[in-house]
Nucleic acid binder design. Structure first.
Length: 500
RNA sequence: GGGUCGGUAGCUCAGUGGUAGAGCAGCGGACUUUUAAUCCGUUGGCCGUGGGUUCGACCCCCACCCGACCCA
Protein backbone atom coordinates (compact mmCIF):
# COMPACT_ATOMS: atom_id res chain seq x y z
CA UNK A 1 0.00 0.00 0.00
CA UNK A 2 1.45 3.38 -0.96
CA UNK A 3 1.68 6.30 1.44
CA UNK A 4 -0.87 8.11 -0.67
CA UNK A 5 -3.35 5.30 -0.23
CA UNK A 6 -2.81 5.27 3.53
CA UNK A 7 -3.45 9.00 3.65
CA UNK A 8 -6.56 8.67 1.50
CA UNK A 9 -7.91 5.81 3.56
CA UNK A 10 -7.22 7.65 6.80
CA UNK A 11 -9.13 10.75 5.85
CA UNK A 12 -12.51 11.09 7.40
CA UNK A 13 -15.01 13.78 8.04
CA UNK A 14 -13.40 14.98 11.27
CA UNK A 15 -10.00 15.36 9.67
CA UNK A 16 -11.49 17.04 6.62
CA UNK A 17 -13.21 19.60 8.85
CA UNK A 18 -10.00 20.27 10.74
CA UNK A 19 -8.08 20.68 7.49
CA UNK A 20 -10.64 23.23 6.41
CA UNK A 21 -10.14 25.08 9.70
CA UNK A 22 -6.37 25.01 9.15
CA UNK A 23 -6.79 26.35 5.62
CA UNK A 24 -8.79 29.20 7.06
CA UNK A 25 -6.06 29.90 9.64
CA UNK A 26 -3.40 29.89 6.90
CA UNK A 27 -5.46 32.34 4.89
CA UNK A 28 -5.54 34.73 7.85
CA UNK A 29 -1.85 34.79 8.79
CA UNK A 30 0.86 32.58 10.26
CA UNK A 31 -0.69 29.20 10.87
CA UNK A 32 2.14 27.73 12.96
CA UNK A 33 3.49 30.68 14.95
CA UNK A 34 6.61 30.28 17.06
CA UNK A 35 6.81 33.60 18.85
CA UNK A 36 4.93 32.79 22.04
CA UNK A 37 7.21 32.73 25.07
CA UNK A 38 5.98 30.20 27.58
CA UNK A 39 7.06 31.21 31.07
CA UNK A 40 5.30 28.84 33.45
CA UNK A 41 4.66 25.15 33.84
CA UNK A 42 1.39 23.91 35.23
CA UNK A 43 3.01 21.81 37.94
CA UNK A 44 5.09 24.73 39.21
CA UNK A 45 2.01 26.94 39.42
CA UNK A 46 0.05 24.28 41.30
CA UNK A 47 2.97 23.79 43.67
CA UNK A 48 3.39 27.48 44.35
CA UNK A 49 -0.20 28.73 44.31
CA UNK A 50 -2.34 25.62 44.75
CA UNK A 51 -2.77 26.20 48.47
CA UNK A 52 -3.13 29.98 48.39
CA UNK A 53 -6.62 31.21 49.37
CA UNK A 54 -8.85 32.50 46.57
CA UNK A 55 -9.02 36.12 47.74
CA UNK A 56 -5.34 36.31 48.57
CA UNK A 57 -4.36 34.82 45.20
CA UNK A 58 -6.55 37.22 43.28
CA UNK A 59 -5.19 40.10 45.35
CA UNK A 60 -1.68 39.20 44.21
CA UNK A 61 -2.69 39.39 40.51
CA UNK A 62 -0.04 36.86 39.43
CA UNK A 63 0.70 37.17 35.71
CA UNK A 64 1.44 33.93 33.87
CA UNK A 65 2.19 32.71 30.34
CA UNK A 66 1.35 29.05 29.80
CA UNK A 67 0.84 26.74 26.86
CA UNK A 68 -0.07 23.16 26.12
CA UNK A 69 -2.42 20.75 24.47
CA UNK A 70 -6.13 21.34 24.97
CA UNK A 71 -7.48 18.13 26.51
CA UNK A 72 -10.94 19.25 27.63
CA UNK A 73 -13.16 22.08 26.51
CA UNK A 74 -16.35 23.32 28.14
CA UNK A 75 -18.10 26.14 26.36
CA UNK A 76 -20.96 27.90 28.13
CA UNK A 77 -22.16 30.72 26.00
CA UNK A 78 -19.95 33.70 26.66
CA UNK A 79 -17.56 31.94 29.08
CA UNK A 80 -15.56 28.74 28.72
CA UNK A 81 -13.17 26.45 30.51
CA UNK A 82 -10.37 24.57 28.81
CA UNK A 83 -8.05 22.04 30.43
CA UNK A 84 -4.57 22.34 29.02
CA UNK A 85 -1.82 19.73 29.42
CA UNK A 86 1.83 20.68 29.35
CA UNK A 87 4.97 18.65 29.97
CA UNK A 88 4.44 18.72 33.70
CA UNK A 89 0.70 18.42 34.24
CA UNK A 90 -2.55 20.20 33.57
CA UNK A 91 -4.04 23.58 34.28
CA UNK A 92 -7.43 25.09 33.56
CA UNK A 93 -8.02 28.19 31.44
CA UNK A 94 -11.00 30.40 32.19
CA UNK A 95 -11.85 32.24 28.99
CA UNK A 96 -14.54 34.87 28.73
CA UNK A 97 -15.70 36.86 25.75
CA UNK A 98 -15.34 40.07 27.73
CA UNK A 99 -11.66 39.37 28.54
CA UNK A 100 -10.35 38.06 25.23
CA UNK A 101 -12.64 39.96 22.87
CA UNK A 102 -15.45 38.85 20.65
CA UNK A 103 -13.26 37.83 17.71
CA UNK A 104 -10.82 35.64 19.66
CA UNK A 105 -13.67 34.10 21.62
CA UNK A 106 -15.48 33.17 18.43
CA UNK A 107 -12.26 31.59 17.10
CA UNK A 108 -11.73 29.68 20.33
CA UNK A 109 -15.12 28.08 19.95
CA UNK A 110 -13.91 26.53 16.67
CA UNK A 111 -10.72 25.13 18.17
CA UNK A 112 -10.53 21.44 18.81
CA UNK A 113 -9.39 19.04 21.48
CA UNK A 114 -5.76 18.31 20.81
CA UNK A 115 -4.90 21.78 19.55
CA UNK A 116 -1.84 23.39 21.09
CA UNK A 117 -2.93 26.66 22.66
CA UNK A 118 -1.28 29.39 24.72
CA UNK A 119 -2.55 31.98 27.13
CA UNK A 120 -1.41 34.96 29.11
CA UNK A 121 -3.46 36.02 32.08
CA UNK A 122 -3.64 36.09 35.84
CA UNK A 123 -4.12 33.26 38.28
CA UNK A 124 -7.51 32.82 39.88
CA UNK A 125 -9.47 30.19 41.73
CA UNK A 126 -12.87 28.97 40.72
CA UNK A 127 -15.67 28.68 43.23
CA UNK A 128 -14.69 25.03 43.75
CA UNK A 129 -11.11 26.13 44.47
CA UNK A 130 -9.42 24.96 41.27
CA UNK A 131 -6.37 27.00 40.32
CA UNK A 132 -7.03 28.47 36.88
CA UNK A 133 -5.70 31.06 34.49
CA UNK A 134 -8.06 33.94 33.89
CA UNK A 135 -7.13 34.44 30.28
CA UNK A 136 -6.56 37.88 28.81
CA UNK A 137 -4.67 36.79 25.67
CA UNK A 138 -5.38 33.50 23.92
CA UNK A 139 -3.64 32.01 20.89
CA UNK A 140 -3.71 28.89 18.80
CA UNK A 141 -0.11 27.72 18.26
CA UNK A 142 -0.59 24.40 16.49
CA UNK A 143 -3.72 23.11 14.86
CA UNK A 144 -4.24 19.39 15.47
CA UNK A 145 -5.71 17.65 12.46
CA UNK A 146 -6.41 14.29 13.99
CA UNK A 147 -8.90 13.64 16.79
CA UNK A 148 -7.47 12.39 20.06
CA UNK A 149 -8.61 9.16 21.67
CA UNK A 150 -11.78 9.40 23.71
CA UNK A 151 -11.25 11.75 26.63
CA UNK A 152 -12.43 9.51 29.44
CA UNK A 153 -11.18 6.04 28.53
CA UNK A 154 -8.12 7.24 26.67
CA UNK A 155 -6.23 4.85 24.45
CA UNK A 156 -6.63 1.27 25.60
CA UNK A 157 -5.70 -0.77 22.54
CA UNK A 158 -2.30 -2.28 23.36
CA UNK A 159 -1.16 -2.37 19.77
CA UNK A 160 -1.94 1.29 19.23
CA UNK A 161 -0.26 2.20 22.52
CA UNK A 162 2.95 0.60 21.26
CA UNK A 163 2.77 1.71 17.63
CA UNK A 164 1.63 5.26 18.34
CA UNK A 165 3.39 5.88 21.63
CA UNK A 166 2.84 9.63 21.29
CA UNK A 167 -0.91 9.06 21.68
CA UNK A 168 -0.33 6.81 24.67
CA UNK A 169 1.84 9.52 26.24
CA UNK A 170 -0.72 12.26 25.57
CA UNK A 171 -3.63 10.35 27.03
CA UNK A 172 -2.32 7.97 29.68
CA UNK A 173 -0.81 9.38 32.87
CA UNK A 174 0.47 5.98 33.93
CA UNK A 175 2.39 5.53 30.73
CA UNK A 176 3.92 9.00 30.98
CA UNK A 177 4.81 8.30 34.58
CA UNK A 178 6.49 5.01 33.70
CA UNK A 179 8.82 6.66 31.22
CA UNK A 180 9.60 9.54 33.54
CA UNK A 181 10.52 6.96 36.17
CA UNK A 182 12.62 5.07 33.65
CA UNK A 183 14.62 8.18 32.97
CA UNK A 184 15.06 8.85 36.68
CA UNK A 185 16.07 5.27 37.42
CA UNK A 186 18.80 5.44 34.77
CA UNK A 187 19.91 8.79 36.13
CA UNK A 188 20.12 7.43 39.68
CA UNK A 189 22.04 4.39 38.51
CA UNK A 190 24.56 6.74 36.87
CA UNK A 191 24.76 8.76 40.04
CA UNK A 192 25.42 5.63 42.09
CA UNK A 193 28.16 4.42 39.75
CA UNK A 194 29.82 7.81 39.50
CA UNK A 195 29.83 8.03 43.29
CA UNK A 196 31.66 4.70 43.26
CA UNK A 197 34.29 6.46 41.12
CA UNK A 198 33.29 4.68 37.93
CA UNK A 199 33.77 6.24 34.49
CA UNK A 200 30.96 6.01 31.97
CA UNK A 201 32.20 4.92 28.55
CA UNK A 202 30.81 4.01 25.14
CA UNK A 203 32.07 1.03 23.20
CA UNK A 204 31.15 -0.13 19.69
CA UNK A 205 27.65 -1.26 18.82
CA UNK A 206 28.94 -2.85 15.62
CA UNK A 207 31.27 -5.76 16.23
CA UNK A 208 33.36 -7.69 13.73
CA UNK A 209 33.13 -10.65 16.11
CA UNK A 210 30.04 -10.87 18.31
CA UNK A 211 31.02 -11.73 21.85
CA UNK A 212 30.43 -11.34 25.55
CA UNK A 213 27.27 -13.43 25.67
CA UNK A 214 25.69 -16.57 24.31
CA UNK A 215 23.14 -15.30 21.80
CA UNK A 216 22.32 -15.03 18.11
CA UNK A 217 23.41 -11.69 16.66
CA UNK A 218 21.89 -9.45 14.01
CA UNK A 219 24.12 -9.27 10.95
CA UNK A 220 24.80 -6.13 8.96
CA UNK A 221 27.28 -5.01 6.36
CA UNK A 222 29.68 -2.10 6.01
CA UNK A 223 29.84 -1.07 2.36
CA UNK A 224 33.11 0.89 2.27
CA UNK A 225 34.98 -1.79 4.17
CA UNK A 226 33.00 -4.54 2.46
CA UNK A 227 32.86 -6.19 5.83
CA UNK A 228 30.30 -8.19 7.72
CA UNK A 229 29.46 -6.66 11.08
CA UNK A 230 27.30 -7.81 13.95
CA UNK A 231 25.15 -5.63 16.17
CA UNK A 232 26.58 -6.26 19.57
CA UNK A 233 25.09 -8.87 21.85
CA UNK A 234 27.10 -7.49 24.80
CA UNK A 235 29.84 -4.90 25.41
CA UNK A 236 31.73 -7.13 27.82
CA UNK A 237 34.89 -7.89 25.84
CA UNK A 238 35.41 -4.22 24.95
CA UNK A 239 34.90 -3.04 28.50
CA UNK A 240 37.49 -5.51 29.77
CA UNK A 241 39.91 -4.29 27.08
CA UNK A 242 39.48 -0.89 28.72
CA UNK A 243 40.39 -2.34 32.10
CA UNK A 244 43.52 -3.78 30.45
CA UNK A 245 44.12 -0.24 29.26
CA UNK A 246 44.08 1.07 32.80
CA UNK A 247 40.51 2.37 33.04
CA UNK A 248 40.03 0.59 36.30
CA UNK A 249 36.36 1.27 36.91
CA UNK A 250 34.15 1.57 33.84
CA UNK A 251 30.47 1.22 33.12
CA UNK A 252 28.30 1.49 30.04
CA UNK A 253 24.53 1.84 29.83
CA UNK A 254 23.52 1.05 26.30
CA UNK A 255 21.69 -1.16 23.89
CA UNK A 256 22.34 -4.80 23.12
CA UNK A 257 20.76 -6.66 20.23
CA UNK A 258 19.81 -10.31 20.22
CA UNK A 259 18.20 -12.01 17.28
CA UNK A 260 15.83 -14.17 19.27
CA UNK A 261 12.17 -14.56 20.08
CA UNK A 262 10.08 -11.75 21.51
CA UNK A 263 8.00 -12.02 24.64
CA UNK A 264 6.84 -9.98 27.60
CA UNK A 265 10.43 -10.29 28.86
CA UNK A 266 12.38 -10.00 25.61
CA UNK A 267 12.73 -7.21 23.08
CA UNK A 268 15.28 -7.63 20.25
CA UNK A 269 17.04 -4.48 21.42
CA UNK A 270 17.29 -3.95 25.13
CA UNK A 271 19.33 -1.89 27.54
CA UNK A 272 21.97 -3.24 29.87
CA UNK A 273 24.36 -1.65 32.26
CA UNK A 274 27.67 -3.47 32.38
CA UNK A 275 30.38 -2.48 34.83
CA UNK A 276 33.91 -3.69 35.49
CA UNK A 277 36.19 -2.97 38.39
CA UNK A 278 39.86 -3.84 38.70
CA UNK A 279 41.04 -5.47 41.93
CA UNK A 280 37.48 -6.54 42.70
CA UNK A 281 35.86 -9.97 42.74
CA UNK A 282 32.33 -11.25 42.36
CA UNK A 283 31.55 -10.60 46.02
CA UNK A 284 32.15 -6.92 45.41
CA UNK A 285 29.95 -7.13 42.28
CA UNK A 286 27.19 -8.72 44.33
CA UNK A 287 27.39 -5.84 46.80
CA UNK A 288 27.31 -3.23 44.05
CA UNK A 289 24.39 -4.91 42.29
CA UNK A 290 22.37 -5.08 45.46
CA UNK A 291 23.35 -1.52 46.30
CA UNK A 292 22.49 0.06 42.98
CA UNK A 293 19.08 -1.61 42.78
CA UNK A 294 18.22 -0.60 46.32
CA UNK A 295 19.42 2.94 45.67
CA UNK A 296 17.37 3.32 42.48
CA UNK A 297 14.25 2.01 44.24
CA UNK A 298 14.67 4.28 47.23
CA UNK A 299 15.48 7.39 45.18
CA UNK A 300 12.86 6.98 42.46
CA UNK A 301 10.04 4.98 44.02
CA UNK A 302 10.65 6.32 47.52
CA UNK A 303 10.80 2.98 49.32
CA UNK A 304 12.43 -0.43 49.03
CA UNK A 305 9.44 -2.66 49.71
CA UNK A 306 7.55 -2.52 46.43
CA UNK A 307 4.50 -4.10 44.86
CA UNK A 308 4.94 -6.06 41.69
CA UNK A 309 1.77 -7.32 40.00
CA UNK A 310 -0.07 -7.45 43.29
CA UNK A 311 2.67 -9.16 45.29
CA UNK A 312 5.24 -7.61 47.59
CA UNK A 313 8.95 -7.64 46.87
CA UNK A 314 11.33 -6.68 49.65
CA UNK A 315 14.46 -5.00 48.35
CA UNK A 316 15.43 -3.66 51.75
CA UNK A 317 16.91 -6.71 53.43
CA UNK A 318 20.06 -8.48 52.20
CA UNK A 319 19.26 -10.57 49.11
CA UNK A 320 19.17 -14.33 49.62
CA UNK A 321 21.96 -16.56 48.26
CA UNK A 322 21.85 -20.14 47.03
CA UNK A 323 24.03 -22.35 44.92
CA UNK A 324 22.20 -23.84 41.94
CA UNK A 325 21.81 -27.25 43.59
CA UNK A 326 20.74 -25.73 46.90
CA UNK A 327 18.15 -23.57 45.18
CA UNK A 328 16.72 -26.55 43.31
CA UNK A 329 16.41 -28.49 46.53
CA UNK A 330 15.04 -25.58 48.53
CA UNK A 331 12.22 -24.98 46.06
CA UNK A 332 11.79 -28.60 44.94
CA UNK A 333 12.42 -30.81 48.01
CA UNK A 334 11.45 -33.93 46.05
CA UNK A 335 14.94 -34.09 44.51
CA UNK A 336 17.59 -35.96 46.49
CA UNK A 337 21.24 -35.06 46.61
CA UNK A 338 22.00 -38.27 44.79
CA UNK A 339 19.59 -37.49 41.94
CA UNK A 340 21.10 -34.06 41.43
CA UNK A 341 24.47 -35.70 40.81
CA UNK A 342 23.13 -38.42 38.52
CA UNK A 343 23.64 -37.47 34.84
CA UNK A 344 21.11 -39.98 33.55
CA UNK A 345 18.47 -38.84 36.04
CA UNK A 346 19.06 -35.17 35.29
CA UNK A 347 18.85 -35.70 31.54
CA UNK A 348 15.64 -37.71 31.83
CA UNK A 349 14.11 -35.18 34.23
CA UNK A 350 14.96 -32.21 32.00
CA UNK A 351 13.49 -34.00 29.00
CA UNK A 352 10.38 -34.90 30.99
CA UNK A 353 9.89 -31.24 31.93
CA UNK A 354 10.23 -30.22 28.30
CA UNK A 355 13.57 -28.44 28.64
CA UNK A 356 15.93 -27.71 25.78
CA UNK A 357 18.18 -30.62 24.80
CA UNK A 358 21.50 -30.15 26.57
CA UNK A 359 24.57 -30.10 24.38
CA UNK A 360 27.05 -30.16 27.21
CA UNK A 361 27.35 -33.20 29.36
CA UNK A 362 28.67 -31.95 32.70
CA UNK A 363 26.78 -32.24 35.96
CA UNK A 364 26.86 -28.46 36.35
CA UNK A 365 25.27 -27.76 32.99
CA UNK A 366 22.59 -30.37 33.62
CA UNK A 367 21.85 -28.94 37.05
CA UNK A 368 21.56 -25.49 35.51
CA UNK A 369 19.02 -26.78 32.98
CA UNK A 370 17.01 -28.38 35.75
CA UNK A 371 17.24 -25.14 37.71
CA UNK A 372 15.86 -23.20 34.74
CA UNK A 373 12.97 -25.64 34.38
CA UNK A 374 12.01 -25.97 38.02
CA UNK A 375 13.28 -23.11 40.13
CA UNK A 376 13.94 -19.86 38.29
CA UNK A 377 10.30 -18.76 38.16
CA UNK A 378 9.89 -19.41 41.89
CA UNK A 379 12.57 -16.94 42.91
CA UNK A 380 10.22 -14.07 43.69
CA UNK A 381 12.22 -12.35 46.42
CA UNK A 382 15.65 -11.09 45.34
CA UNK A 383 17.97 -14.10 45.25
CA UNK A 384 21.54 -14.48 44.13
CA UNK A 385 22.30 -17.83 42.56
CA UNK A 386 26.03 -18.48 42.84
CA UNK A 387 28.70 -20.96 41.74
CA UNK A 388 27.92 -21.49 38.06
CA UNK A 389 29.59 -24.35 36.21
CA UNK A 390 32.60 -23.39 34.08
CA UNK A 391 31.19 -25.10 30.98
CA UNK A 392 28.41 -22.50 30.71
CA UNK A 393 30.58 -19.59 31.89
CA UNK A 394 33.30 -19.17 29.28
CA UNK A 395 34.36 -15.72 30.49
CA UNK A 396 34.27 -16.28 34.23
CA UNK A 397 37.15 -17.02 36.55
CA UNK A 398 37.30 -20.55 37.90
CA UNK A 399 37.24 -21.20 41.62
CA UNK A 400 40.68 -21.79 43.09
CA UNK A 401 39.42 -24.54 45.34
CA UNK A 402 36.48 -26.16 43.56
CA UNK A 403 37.17 -27.55 40.10
CA UNK A 404 34.53 -26.91 37.43
CA UNK A 405 32.94 -24.05 39.39
CA UNK A 406 33.28 -20.37 38.53
CA UNK A 407 33.00 -17.30 40.74
CA UNK A 408 29.77 -16.25 39.09
CA UNK A 409 26.29 -15.17 40.17
CA UNK A 410 22.96 -14.31 38.67
CA UNK A 411 20.31 -12.26 40.42
CA UNK A 412 16.68 -13.30 40.20
CA UNK A 413 13.74 -11.17 41.28
CA UNK A 414 10.04 -11.90 40.64
CA UNK A 415 11.11 -15.06 38.86
CA UNK A 416 13.22 -13.25 36.28
CA UNK A 417 16.92 -12.84 35.71
CA UNK A 418 17.98 -9.27 36.51
CA UNK A 419 21.77 -9.42 36.65
CA UNK A 420 24.71 -11.64 35.82
CA UNK A 421 28.22 -11.09 37.13
CA UNK A 422 31.49 -12.76 37.98
CA UNK A 423 35.11 -12.55 38.82
CA UNK A 424 36.57 -12.14 35.36
CA UNK A 425 38.71 -14.76 33.75
CA UNK A 426 42.06 -13.02 33.29
CA UNK A 427 44.23 -16.04 32.46
CA UNK A 428 44.81 -15.64 28.70
CA UNK A 429 45.72 -19.28 28.16
CA UNK A 430 42.64 -20.52 29.99
CA UNK A 431 40.55 -18.01 28.01
CA UNK A 432 41.98 -19.28 24.72
CA UNK A 433 41.06 -22.83 25.69
CA UNK A 434 37.54 -21.83 26.68
CA UNK A 435 37.01 -20.00 23.40
CA UNK A 436 38.17 -23.15 21.62
CA UNK A 437 35.63 -25.18 23.58
CA UNK A 438 32.95 -22.70 22.49
CA UNK A 439 34.00 -23.03 18.87
CA UNK A 440 33.74 -26.80 19.22
CA UNK A 441 30.19 -26.35 20.54
CA UNK A 442 29.40 -24.08 17.63
CA UNK A 443 30.63 -26.76 15.24
CA UNK A 444 28.30 -29.20 16.97
CA UNK A 445 25.36 -26.97 16.12
CA UNK A 446 25.04 -24.59 19.07
CA UNK A 447 24.49 -21.33 17.21
CA UNK A 448 24.51 -19.38 20.47
CA UNK A 449 28.05 -20.53 21.32
CA UNK A 450 30.79 -17.90 21.24
CA UNK A 451 33.33 -17.10 18.56
CA UNK A 452 37.07 -17.13 19.13
CA UNK A 453 38.14 -13.52 19.68
CA UNK A 454 41.88 -13.43 19.06
CA UNK A 455 42.30 -9.74 19.81
CA UNK A 456 40.58 -10.18 23.15
CA UNK A 457 42.99 -12.98 24.02
CA UNK A 458 45.85 -10.74 22.90
CA UNK A 459 44.59 -8.02 25.23
CA UNK A 460 44.51 -10.50 28.12
CA UNK A 461 48.07 -11.47 27.26
CA UNK A 462 49.11 -7.92 28.12
CA UNK A 463 47.59 -8.51 31.53
CA UNK A 464 44.06 -7.89 32.83
CA UNK A 465 44.29 -7.14 36.54
CA UNK A 466 42.07 -9.29 38.73
CA UNK A 467 38.67 -7.84 37.92
CA UNK A 468 35.03 -8.20 38.79
CA UNK A 469 32.25 -7.48 36.29
CA UNK A 470 28.49 -7.48 36.08
CA UNK A 471 25.58 -6.73 33.78
CA UNK A 472 22.18 -5.48 34.97
CA UNK A 473 19.14 -5.55 32.69
CA UNK A 474 17.78 -2.03 32.79
CA UNK A 475 14.46 -2.78 31.10
CA UNK A 476 13.68 -5.53 33.56
CA UNK A 477 14.70 -3.38 36.50
CA UNK A 478 12.38 -0.65 35.24
CA UNK A 479 9.60 -3.23 34.85
CA UNK A 480 10.14 -4.26 38.44
CA UNK A 481 10.18 -0.72 39.81
CA UNK A 482 7.24 0.55 37.74
CA UNK A 483 5.10 -2.56 38.20
CA UNK A 484 4.99 -3.15 34.42
CA UNK A 485 3.86 -6.60 33.28
CA UNK A 486 5.56 -6.43 29.87
CA UNK A 487 8.94 -5.20 28.67
CA UNK A 488 7.00 -3.36 25.96
CA UNK A 489 5.52 -1.15 28.64
CA UNK A 490 8.95 0.21 29.56
CA UNK A 491 10.41 0.59 26.05
CA UNK A 492 9.12 3.69 24.28
CA UNK A 493 9.05 2.12 20.85
CA UNK A 494 9.06 -1.67 21.22
CA UNK A 495 9.75 -3.77 18.18
CA UNK A 496 6.59 -4.56 16.24
CA UNK A 497 5.69 -6.34 13.06
CA UNK A 498 5.30 -4.10 10.01
CA UNK A 499 1.88 -2.52 9.91
CA UNK A 500 1.07 -3.39 6.29
C1' G B 1 5.93 -22.89 16.37
C1' G B 2 1.12 -24.38 19.49
C1' G B 3 -3.24 -22.72 22.39
C1' U B 4 -6.80 -18.95 24.15
C1' C B 5 -9.01 -14.27 23.40
C1' G B 6 -9.67 -10.05 20.40
C1' G B 7 -10.02 -6.71 15.50
C1' U B 8 -17.59 -3.20 14.39
C1' A B 9 -17.85 5.03 13.49
C1' G B 10 -11.90 9.17 14.90
C1' C B 11 -11.96 6.82 20.26
C1' U B 12 -14.42 3.42 24.13
C1' C B 13 -17.71 -0.46 23.42
C1' A B 14 -22.76 -3.14 22.47
C1' G B 15 -24.91 -6.23 18.77
C1' U B 16 -25.71 -12.39 16.84
C1' G B 17 -28.75 -15.35 10.21
C1' G B 18 -33.46 -10.65 8.35
C1' U B 19 -32.82 -2.31 7.14
C1' A B 20 -25.53 -1.68 11.45
C1' G B 21 -26.26 0.67 17.46
C1' A B 22 -24.78 3.69 22.11
C1' G B 23 -21.50 7.07 24.71
C1' C B 24 -17.53 10.40 23.73
C1' A B 25 -15.45 13.33 19.69
C1' G B 26 -17.45 16.27 15.27
C1' C B 27 -21.29 19.68 13.13
C1' G B 28 -25.78 23.32 14.26
C1' G B 29 -28.26 25.72 18.45
C1' A B 30 -28.91 27.38 24.08
C1' C B 31 -25.94 28.65 28.28
C1' U B 32 -20.55 34.20 31.85
C1' U B 33 -17.45 29.50 37.54
C1' U B 34 -17.44 24.37 34.41
C1' U B 35 -14.87 19.61 36.29
C1' A B 36 -15.77 13.20 31.66
C1' A B 37 -20.11 20.34 32.13
C1' U B 38 -25.33 20.11 30.79
C1' C B 39 -29.68 20.43 27.37
C1' C B 40 -31.97 20.14 22.11
C1' G B 41 -30.94 18.65 17.07
C1' U B 42 -27.56 16.14 13.67
C1' U B 43 -23.36 14.03 10.26
C1' G B 44 -20.41 9.85 10.21
C1' G B 45 -19.42 2.38 8.85
C1' C B 46 -15.55 -2.14 2.62
C1' C B 47 -18.37 -4.79 10.78
C1' G B 48 -9.49 -6.88 9.86
C1' U B 49 -8.68 -9.30 4.53
C1' G B 50 -10.03 -13.14 0.99
C1' G B 51 -12.92 -17.28 -0.10
C1' G B 52 -17.25 -20.27 0.90
C1' U B 53 -22.44 -21.95 3.04
C1' U B 54 -27.31 -19.41 2.55
C1' C B 55 -32.96 -16.49 -0.65
C1' G B 56 -30.10 -13.43 2.76
C1' A B 57 -23.71 -13.22 6.67
C1' C B 58 -21.02 -8.32 11.34
C1' C B 59 -23.12 -13.10 12.87
C1' C B 60 -22.01 -19.84 10.47
C1' C B 61 -17.51 -22.48 7.92
C1' C B 62 -12.30 -22.25 5.83
C1' A B 63 -7.79 -19.66 4.98
C1' C B 64 -4.90 -15.51 5.87
C1' C B 65 -3.24 -10.69 8.28
C1' C B 66 -2.55 -7.91 12.90
C1' G B 67 -2.50 -7.73 18.22
C1' A B 68 -2.74 -9.35 23.51
C1' C B 69 -1.96 -13.27 26.87
C1' C B 70 -0.25 -18.25 27.95
C1' C B 71 2.87 -22.39 26.50
C1' A B 72 7.39 -24.28 23.81
Amino acid sequence: MSDEQIIQQDENQIIAERRAKLANIRANGVAFPNDFKREHLSADLHAKYGEVEKEELEGQAVSVAVAGRMMLKRVMGKASFATVQDGAGRIQFYITRDNVGEEVYASFKTWDMGDIIAAKGTLMKTKTGELSVQVSELRLLTKSLRPLPEKFHGLTDQEQKYRQRYLDLITNDTSRDTFVKRSRIVQKIREFMVNERYLEVETPMMHPIPGGASAKPFITHHNALDMQLFLRIAPELYLKRLVVGGMERVFEINRNFRNEGMSTRHNPEFTMMEFYEAYADYERMIDLTEGVIRFAAKEVIGHTVIDYQGKQVDLSKPFARFTIAAAIQHYNPQYTDEQLHDRAFLKAEIARLGGKPVLTDGIGGLQLSLFEETTEEKLWEPTFIIDYPAEVSPLARASDTRPGITERFELFIVGREHANGYSELNDPEDQAERFQAQVALKDKGDDEAMHYDADYVRALEFGLPPTGGCGIGIDRLVMLLTDAPSIRDVILFPQMRRED
